[in-house]
Design a protein around this nucleic acid. Sequence first.
DNA 1: TTTACGGCTGACA
DNA 2: GTGTCAGCCGTAA
Length: 239
Amino acid sequence: MTDTLLTALRDLAEPAPATLADRVVDTWVRVPGPLGEVFAVTGARGVRLLRPAAHAGDLDAFLEGYRARHGRPVIPAARAPRGLLPALSGTGPGPDLDLGALTPFAREVLAVTARIPAGQTRPYGWVAREAGHPKAVRAVGTVLARNPVPLLVPCHRVVRGDGDVGQYLSGVPDKVALLEREGVELAHLAGLVGSDTTGVVCFPTCHHARRITTAHRQGFASLERARAAGYRPCRDCRP
DNA sequence: TTTACGGCTGACA
DNA sequence: GTGTCAGCCGTAA
């Protein structure tokens, strides 16, 4: 009787859909990053967490932290998610990201940050303004301090308005190294730079600013000063 | 609901 | 030029 029942039940069973595992467990990989290896966890909708291995402690601590944060099991992945390796080596667009666990404000801050081109920097106040909360400057810092996917969302490109690089998740030396790797001149982050031939003023790291020849380069402490001198803000970097 | 806390900023001495 | 301090605001506990 029991055998008959079991056989009948077995015949009823269907193969699990190929995507079932994606919905039940997340997967982790350990891959090379710009400053050493990184751990990354990917869910069905994209990468959810990334940490430099040197900063995450050992793998067990990293995975335990992920489970505590997201309440989901994690297993090793067969391969890195598409786009992760090119993004970490700076040779291609990034993987899909799953930032659904974040608040709308945090998602907007990360979306703005993700649009800062490699080799360029923007102040925290600029990110706050672009995210639609111009006075929430410190809140931007708080969001970036908790960025679940550093390197993929390049929070190292957000610096202080006074020219200091500011703080970073895994320490200021990492931030400096990442910026230098992208060719950023750390001594020239403060203020704005204009061209007296075009009357346009940019952030110093904007690709337009870098093309201004020395003879026509004008420095400004603020946008107000530049405007008073007859300059208009660059449409690309929007100082 | 309240409170404390920051990867900051701008004013002022 | 440099240091200090109050203000600002989204989060998490």
